[in-house]
Nucleic acid binder design. Sequence first.
DNA 1: AGCGTCTCTGTTAACGCTAACAAAATTGGT
DNA 2: ACCAATTTTGTTAGCGTTAACAGAGACGCT
Lengths: 335, 335
Amino acid sequence: MAVHGPAMTDVARLAGVSHQTVSRVLNGHPNVREQTRLRVRAAIAELGYRPNGAARALVTGRSQVIGVVAQNTTLYGPASLLAALEQTAAEEGFAVSVGSVRNLDHRSISAAVERHLSHRVAGIVVIAPVESAGEALERLPKDVPLVTVDGDPSRPVPLVTVDQVAGARAATQHLLDAGHRTVWHVSGPTDWFDSVGRIDGWRQALLAAGVDPPPPMPGDWSAASGYRCGQMLARMPEVTAVFTANDHLALGVLRALHEFGRRVPDEISVVGFDDVPEAAYFIPPLTTVRPDFDAVARASLQMLLSQIESGTGGALRQTVAPALVARQSVAPPRR
Amino acid sequence: MAVHGPAMTDVARLAGVSHQTVSRVLNGHPNVREQTRLRVRAAIAELGYRPNGAARALVTGRSQVIGVVAQNTTLYGPASLLAALEQTAAEEGFAVSVGSVRNLDHRSISAAVERHLSHRVAGIVVIAPVESAGEALERLPKDVPLVTVDGDPSRPVPLVTVDQVAGARAATQHLLDAGHRTVWHVSGPTDWFDSVGRIDGWRQALLAAGVDPPPPMPGDWSAASGYRCGQMLARMPEVTAVFTANDHLALGVLRALHEFGRRVPDEISVVGFDDVPEAAYFIPPLTTVRPDFDAVARASLQMLLSQIESGTGGALRQTVAPALVARQSVAPPRR
DNA sequence: AGCGTCTCTGTTAACGCTAACAAAATTGGT
DNA sequence: ACCAATTTTGTTAGCGTTAACAGAGACGCT
């Protein structure tokens, strides 16, 4: 009592009503006399009463907590998404419980989801950018509200995603528009849907321009792998434009090009993806594509909440368009 | 039943024991016959039983959840810390609930803490790098296990922190050792304890070398503010060495110096702080100080768990030493 | 006045688990 | 084989809340 604070019955006693009436006030039930409602509110304030979420969760079978499963919350994208999700959830009165996971393999994901389920979360958001995550998701009890972000477009699971294809197309087109005859691509890991989408968009833009796409160079999102690819690109005199799957890869490429004395954008133009806050201060400032993480978070949460309220598990799909941010890393090719 | 999965009584029935015995097996109570234990385990596996955390939390008064309050989980430091915290907590069987907060003022912090308390978290970790957070923390119910990270060293609250002073001293000393006569400093926001500590360490190293510290230039952690400071530094011919309070500031400085044609490290040496993964790919690769976020997370959690178990609220203090990572952004001054 | 129909409030019974105690089974020493 | 100590199991009573139903007034109609 002393330690755990007052309970509903204490409020009821002080207000001179039954605990059930207090419950009704708390849950905004209509049939409570205005005067009673005020008395209860006053008692709540006086005692500093705070409803016990565990008890509520026990009886309703659902808590006011949303579980998020993500892999590497240190990467800029996932971190931004998580923060946005948390903000949005808080506005709706939900807490967010993170379950990060070392690998996005089947077992790790299941384990994280299990942990969330055992806490009886109201719903789960899975940031599942790779193939292997999909399997784990299909075996889930299907009465659990679930939304995937950046997941597999081919699976029948509610999905919110940044329009990778459109973003990549815009980036590539921007380079073509500047006069480049073709655009090379440093991609992310090919088992990530994000990567696949960005490769697709890049390829589409080239094909639409009647250009045969060169082979994409696979990276792993890190500046280190961008650097390695950059070392190769720097040695190829015909390369004048590069689109990298994220800004960190671009940083590595910029560094390699700089070391080889190839000037950006004079000799080679570079475009990234993500618009990390530092991108404007790369040398030179990086032209990139900015996904709207807030919009993604809002859409995911809205989708999740509608499932929670309706009880039905719709298989919706929502896509958020990213925007090109032009800076100084792009210029027309020298002739 | 069907929707919410089997309960303890279902397991008990299948195993031919009472639900209390199941509870004992689950909680590792010693006095259970080996044979019984196995039978119960088998039943649990067969039914896919998952204990109900809400019910457990209700009766014990504590959930297996740790609340984290942080401001900007998009910044590299907090994000890394959060991820490490989550990993460590998961190993101990705890989930982590994030409560991010727009501002670290008194009211926002209290609100976030309230939200956690209403979910009956077992303990709270506050990543509270600024002064204003301290007040909010002192009014908390003192029976809640609490640990602050990077908080106010002068308050009687359990605290884990990176040794900012030692890190900054090492960075500054490294520059002095290279032969520089003095070292300039681009600091973080001065209401952050991290910044204060780094300023202190820098100043200490200079004073110990018999040098009068130049005025620190205040930034706000962002590359943008680093760039602004860099523009000033670039115009000052006497500057040969700069220590920035984090790597993003350093990036901004590097960019400004580059624009002004001042070469790093030939004319000016730069050292950062944080060792973000990209720092090795800046132009030139950045010498920096690497805090051990995993160690901080482990220490915080251990401190929190010992409070949870013992019930006592010790006012411990623990400091984690960072390590200097030497790269190519430092060289002896030209003479 | 009498009676159904609202609106408001109270009573009781879960939800799934652990704690405390009670009972039964096992062990060991004689 | 018998009693006491010990180990193992079962029984009961909550934890704080919501849901379902029951009861008590207030109101309008015949």
